[in-house]
Every structure is written in structure tokens, then in C-alpha cells.
Design a protein around this nucleic acid. Structure first.
Lengths: 147, 147
DNA sequence: ACTAACTCTACCTACTAGATAGAGTTAATT
DNA sequence: AATTAACTCTATCTAGTAGGTAGAGTTAGT
């Protein structure tokens, strides 16, 4: 299961992608629209900002904006940011490889081969799905035209 | 990531599958061979016993035996037992479906479609991989002949 | 009776998820 | 320059879980 936090992050990005990208969107607006606890969402957006996915403006008329086109933000990269490695075993992670403490040899590990296939299949989906895929037909067309 | 416990369970089953199925295998043997903390493995095997995957014999000459052929024990069923649902979202679980608290409509959920594909891809691998796949060529041949 | 081995329940410690609280900072407006 | 809307940051809290340990109880072979 993915974390609640990752779910919120994806839905917040989806909300931003759907919004008019000329005017920033308030944390409060996103929170209400997506039923996300506001203070929790603050943290999430701040984090996404530090990682360069969104930008913010303070003060009156402030809010958040998407910094990259929705088609360039993959589910995989968001999940990896929030929940950590995609791989089901540490010894299969691309970004946080770690040898299993209890495993004598990776070549001989009884279960590694199977999970390698799981990892591959999962990545295939997650890195080919983007925030643009969350938009319905109408919105997606608008985004493509604008982009 | 799968839990350490699930990893241990799979490796313990692999050890049992590789063993001579005429003589029970001691918890201590499995623990040593697979570098699993013995007392923790006790719990895991007991759990697997209650679920009908292995049987045990107490007292002298006791130990554990596989109850089903290795080819009939899938990775998916073990993972589901130990770690719970395979699906990345509660609303996509086959065995423990639960509506997301914060999601208004499943039809319109921005992220559900993508994760449905993840779930499908993962299940495809996990329910087609069995404990028999953990055996190397030599052992697998022996098991097939014996079965 | 002895003892090897599984059985069961309880417990422990560290960590994480999922938040909430509140003081601080910035910038537009009046 | 005062006000206020809005983001920023750090601290804190609570419940739950992972991963493991302890130890008394039970069974069955010798």
C-alpha cells in the first residue's frame, strides 16, 4: 500500500494540473477540493516545492503553481520522493540500493529473481504514468493545447 | 518494500521445499541455514501451520514439513498472508476492499486508474511465481520427479 | 522420568504514519 | 506604516507497527 501522504501529493498535483496555471491556487482550496487536512497538505506542498515540482507565492494573491508540465511528472518520481524506493527488496532498489543483511549471495537468493520481475513490472507502469493521466478528456485537451 | 517477516517466510518455505520431505526439518536448522532469528521464525512457522501450508511434529525427531507441493504455493498468497493486501490502494484490494475515506467517487478518483494497472501487473507476477521457482535446476528436477 | 522440540502468550523497543499547533515571515493593499 | 492574507518552519503528539525477545507450557520419543 502506498502512504496516505503519497496519495495526497498525487491528488494535490492533479488539482494543480487541472487549475488555471495563471493564478496560484491556495493550499486551502486544494485541501478543501481534495479533502486533505490543510496543515498536513502544507507540509506536503512545501516538500514538493523544495524538490522543484511546484513554486509558491506568499502573501495576498499567493498560492501554489505547477512548475513542470503535468506530462513530465511521473507517478514513479512522486512515489519515490514520498514513500521511498519502488523496489520490493532493498537489494533491488535503483535509488537506495542496500545489501540484505541476512542474504548470503544475491546470485543465489531464493526470492530475488521473482521480486526483480515485480519491480520491473511496477516501474513500467509508474514511470509511464504522469499527472496528465489524471485529467479527464476535457482538461487533458486543454493542457495539451496550452503546452 | 515487503516486510522482513514475509521475506523470512518465503525463504523458510524455500528451505523446506529443498529439504528431504521424508524427515521433518528443525526450526533451528532452517534458522541457521537462512540466518533467521530462531524465536521469530517459530512464530512465522506456527502461523504458516495454522494456515495449512506446513505441518509440524513435536518432540524428538520433530520439526516442520511442507504440506503442499512447492509448485502450488504462490508468492502472492504468502505475501498476502503476512503483509496483507497486494493492491497499492485499499479500494483496489481483492481480499480487503475498503473505500478510501477521502475519495468522493471511485469512478472519478484521479489516481485509481494508474494504480489499478500497478496492481494488475504485480498480481500477474506474484501469483504465477511459486516456491518451486526458488529451487535451482537440480532441486527443481528432484521435486518434479518426486511430485 | 527425561529431554528434545514445538506451542503459546506476553512483552519490549524503536520507528513511522498521520497528523496538529503555533510562532514567524512575506507581500499586497489601504 | 499598519493590516492582513498567505506561505514557512519547527516542534510536538498519538496510535500503530515492525521486528524481535522471554519464558512457561505441552507433547512425544527413548
Amino acid at each position: 500500500m502506498i502512504s496516505q501522504k503519497a496519495k495526497y501529493a498525487l491528488r494535490a498535483l492533479a488539482a494543480l494540473a487541472r487549475a488555471d496555471n495563471k493564478r496560484p491556487m491556495l493550499i486551502a482550496e486544494i485541501a478543501e477540493q481534495q479533502k486533505i487536512p490543510k496543515k498536513f497538505l502544507e507540509q506536503i506542498l512545501l516538500d514538493l516545492k523544495h524538490r522543484g515540482l511546484v513554486m509558491s507565492k506568499r502573501g495576498k494573491e499567493g498560492g501554489y503553481l505547477l512548475l513542470k508540465p503535468a506530462e513530465e511528472i511521473t507517478f514513479g518520481e512522486i512515489l519515490r520522493m514520498i514513500d521511498g524506493p519502488i523496489a520490493p527488496l532493498p537489494c533491488l532498489s535503483q535509488t537506495a540500493y542496500r545489501k540484505c543483511d541476512d542474504c548470503l549471495s544475491e546470485q543465489e537468493c531464493e526470492i530475488r529473481h521473482v521480486f526483480a520481475r515485480v519491480a520491473e513490472a511496477t516501474r513500467e507502469v509508474l514511470f509511464n504514468a504522469t499527472i496528465a493521466d489524471t485529467l479527464d478528456g476535457q482538461n487533458r485537451a486543454a493542457v495539451v493545447l496550452a503546452g
